[in-house]
Design a protein around this nucleic acid. Structure first.
Lengths: 125, 125
DNA sequence: TCCCTATCTCGATGGATGTCAAGTTAGACG
DNA sequence: CGTCTAACTTGACATCCATCGAGATAGGGA
């Protein structure tokens, strides 16, 4: 049984507040915003890209690392990265020759909490 | 500041174990399975349907309740419900004249945990 | 300067998908 | 049985989207 240092994150501290998908009906606008992000990660290649970036050493990966992991052309990888970028899931910056991408953790936390059951959420540190 | 009764849910108790999107690279198969569910909820109408069902009194809603909430034809609503059903997000059963849909909480919990940061997760009861 | 590599943008194309009209199935009620 | 309502299925259509080749842009090094 692992040990746990528990950090309470109550809903009213969350910033910005996650849409409570499970607790009350989403407005049309909330649904459109949230769906855009879910659609971005609702594609196998993009989900693998996200996972590769998130789990890469140092928390970031350059495009060449990612391209090598797929049997897809450069433009296709570039397209998927752009979709993830425009959905606010990842961000990238050029450092010299290479462009490095990393996850935007706030967006992921927002998604995760929006699907959590209708109750407060605590995350162990 | 709200009070919290904390129930620890450690990763090795989770059944089935959530894919650790944020902690290690997904396999091709894991990504395909997960992406199918995210794609299902990555559509505004379907996300609103899910939210309506989840937040409806009694935890379930009949199709007529749902159809009235949209300016869309019956077949279109039926199509979206089918996509959600085949993704394992909701389930429905007929009781007399009406068919009632409800959320499958395990699937939602799986999604939520798969996007959570690379650490254990605790949910307040 | 010129060239090489890394990455992105553009345009085209085939396949996936949201939507609806028409028709079908399932149950309730005489 | 016949009819009414709830929900689904089918088929068609328009739009969206994943993919690639060709070309553009950015930076490093000779």
């Amino acid at each position: 049984m692992p040990k746990h240092d528990v950090l309470i994150v109550s809903r009213d501290e969350a910033e910005p507040c996650a849409s409570a998908v499970m607790r009350e009906p989403l407005t049309v606008d909330q649904a459109a915003d949230l769906a855009k992000v879910f659609k971005a990660i609702g594609e196998p290649v993009r989900l693998r890209l996200l996972s590769l970036i998130a789990s890469h050493a140092g928390g970031e990966a350059c495009v060449c690392d990612l391209t090598d992991a797929f049997e897809l052309s450069g433009p296709t990888i570039s397209h998927h990265l752009k979709v993830l970028r425009e959905a606010g899931v990842i961000e990238g910056d050029r450092r010299g020759t290479w462009i490095y991408y990393r996850v935007k953790p706030d967006t992921l936390r927002l998604l995760s909490e929006s699907l959590a059951p209708a109750q407060d959420v605590a995350v162990t540190a």
